[in-house]
C-alpha cells in the first residue's frame, strides 16, 4: 500500500529515520512497528487520536524514552546510544510552553541559551535576530505573564529554535489561540522550514494538517496512512483531512 517514495531509506537528506520501531509497556503495544522518515526542511504532521501512541513515539524521537526495538536515527544520531547528542540537535515546544512566567522575555531566552551552552555574544545576537523577526524587540524586558497568549506561543517557538537545532518538535503548539494568531504561528513555521529547519508537529486542528507537506495518521499504535494531504484526500475520497482522519479512525473502531 505504500508508495515507493515512502520506503526509501538511508537517504542523505533524511533527518529522521525510523525502522520497525516498537514500544511496549508490559503487554500493551503502544507503538507497533512504525517505519517512516522525515526529510530535511520538511513540515511533517504527526496525527492520531488520543491514546493512539503519538506521545510515546515523540518521546522516543526526542531521546526521552528508549524504544523496545527498532532502528531509529534522529538528526544523524542513534536513539539508543546518542541521546545526549540528539537532545543538543533538536528543539522541543509543547502545549504548555515551558517559559517562565515570572521572568522577562530576554531572561527566558538567556536561560535557554545557557542550557544549550550558547556563548553570551551568540545569545545576544540570537535574541536580537529572533525578536526582530517577531517584531517584539520593544517588549524584550517585559515580564512574561504580562504579555498575550499569542506572543508567548511565538516566543516559545523562538526559544525552541534558538540553539539552531536541525529538527523542532511541536506538540499541539496552537491549542486555544484565536484563528488569526494560529495562522501567524504557522507563517512562522513556514518561514523556519524555508530556512531549512525540519518541523515535526502534532495537532488536533485538522485544517492544520493541510499545512503540512506530509502527514502520518496513527491509529491504535500503528501508522495507518502516510502521504501528502492532497494524495490522502484523493485516496480516501475525502473533501478534507478531517474526513480522512474520521474515516481512518472510524474504520478501526467498527473493526474492534
Amino acid at each position: 500500500m505504500q508508495t515507493p517514495d515512502l520506503i526509501k531509506q538511508n537517504e542523505p537528506n533524511h533527518v529522521i529515520e525510523v525502522n520497525n520501531m516498537v514500544k511496549k509497556f508490559g503487554d500493551f503495544v503502544a507503538n507497533d512497528k512504525l517505519s517512516f522518515f522525515v526529510r530535511q526542511g520538511e513540515i511533517f504532521g504527526f496525527l492520531g487520536a488520543n491514546g493512539a501512541g503519538k506521545t510515546t513515539a515523540m518521546k522516543i524521537l526526542c531521546g526521552l524514552s528508549a524504544p523496545t526495538s527498532g532502528e531509529i536515527n534522529v538528526a544523524g544520531f542513534d536513539v539508543y546510544r546518542q541521546t545526549d547528542l540528539i537532545k543538543k540537535n533538536i528543539g522541543y515546544m509543547s502545549q504548555k510552553f515551558s517559559l517562565y512566567e515570572d521572568l522577562t522575555i530576554r531572561e527566558n531566552f538567556r536561560f535557554y541559551g545557557g542550557i544549550y551552552g550558547l556563548k553570551n555574544a551568540e545569545i545576544k545576537e540570537r535574541i536580537a535576530y529572533l525578536l526582530n523577526r517577531l517584531g517584539l524587540m520593544h517588549a524584550a524586558d517585559k515580564v512574561l505573564k504580562e504579555i498575550p497568549l499569542g506572543w508567548k506561543q511565538k516566543l516559545a517557538f523562538s526559544v525552541a529554535i534558538m540553539h539552531r537545532p536541525k529538527i523542532v518538535f511541536l506538540d499541539e503548539p496552537t491549542g486555544g489561540v484565536d484563528p488569526v494568531t494560529r495562522r501567524q504561528f504557522w507563517e512562522l513555521i513556514y518561514e523556519a522550514a524555508n530556512d531549512g529547519l525540519t518541523v515535526f508537529v502534532t495537532t488536533h486542528y485538522m485544517d492544520e494538517a493541510e499545512y503540512c507537506e506530509r502527514v502520518s495518521i496513527m491509529v491504535d499504535g500503528r501508522i495507518e496512512a502516510l502521504d501528502t494531504p492532497a494524495r490522502l484526500r484523493e485516496k480516501y475520497q475525502a473533501a478534507s483531512m478531517n474526513e480522512v482522519f474520521l474515516k481512518l479512525a472510524r474504520i478501526k473502531k467498527s473493526e474492534s
Binding site: 488520543n50 479512525a249 473502531k253
Partner: peptide, 10 residues
C-alpha cells in the same frame, strides 16, 4: 472538547 481528538469530538 479541548485537547480531544477529532473522532471523540464528533
Amino acid at each position: 472538547t479541548t485537547g480531544v481528538d477529532a473522532v471523540s469530538r464528533k
